[in-house]
Amino acid sequence: MANNIKMQTNSEDKPIISLKSVSKWYEDFQALKNIDLEIKLKEKIVICGPSGSGKSTLIRCLNRLEAHQEGQITVTGIELHERMKDIDTVRQDIGMVFQSFNLFPHLTVLENCMAGPNWVRGIDQNEAKERAMALLKQVKIPEQADKYPEQLSGGQQQRVAIARSLCMQPKVMLFDEPTSALDPEMVSEVLDTMVELAESGMTMICVTHEMGFAKQVADRIIFMDEGEIVEQNTPEEFFNNPKNNRTKAFLDQVLS
C-alpha cells in the first residue's frame, strides 16, 4: 500500500468522495477488499489494472449501481447505503459514461441530452434544449442533434453519452472503460473530449487502459489487482518508478 505518499492537489482539501475499508462480495467471491480512498474536488483519477481486478466494480459502487457490503462510501457529503431515501438526488450529481454508451435508442441525440434536465431536474424544455445544444457543441457534434443514436458512429455515440451526462451539471464524472468498445480510429476523438473536460476542471474518475491519457491528465493513478488497491501515485512516479511487482508486470504488458 502506498497511501501515505503525499499527493499534490490543486484545490480544497475536503474530499468529494471518500471510501473507508469498503468490501464487496459477489456470492463467495470478494470483488473489493478493504478499499480506502479519498478523492478531492477537481482531482482527476485514473484507475487501471488487469480485467477482473475490481476497477469497474469500484467505480459502479460510487453511484451505487452496485451495492457494497462493508465499509463506508461517502459521495458529495452523503453516505451511500442500503436504506437511503435520496439515492436519485445523489446520482443526479454524478455523471456516468459506460463502455457500451447506453444511449436511449428511441430518442434523438438532442432528446437524449434533454431527458435528464427536463424530466428529472424539472428544467423547462427551452432551457434544457439550449443547454443540450451547448454541450453538443462542446463535444463537437451539434449537427447530429436530430439523428437517432444508431445513425452515429461509436465515437460519436460516446461523445453524446458524455454530453448527456454533462447536461445534468454533475459534480463528478465517472468513466467506465469509455473507449474499450470503440474501433481504434475513434478512440482519440473520445479521449480528446475527455481531456478538454479535464482541463475545464471537472472531477473525474476514469477506469481505462489508455495510458497516454493517464499520463496527460491524471493527478493520480490507482493500480488495482484482485480487489485491492495495490499502488497509487502521480503519473511520473507510477510509470517511471513503480514500487510493486504486480504493477511492474502490468506496466510491462500494457506499455510493450
Binding site: 454524478i94 456516468m96 447506453n102 436511449f104
Partner: peptide
C-alpha cells in the same frame, strides 16, 4: 438491455 436501466438510474431517474 440492462444498460438502459443502468444509464437511466445513473442519471437519477426514478
Amino acid at each position: 438491455p440492462k444498460g438502459q436501466w443502468e444509464a437511466s438510474r445513473a442519471l437519477g431517474f426514478p
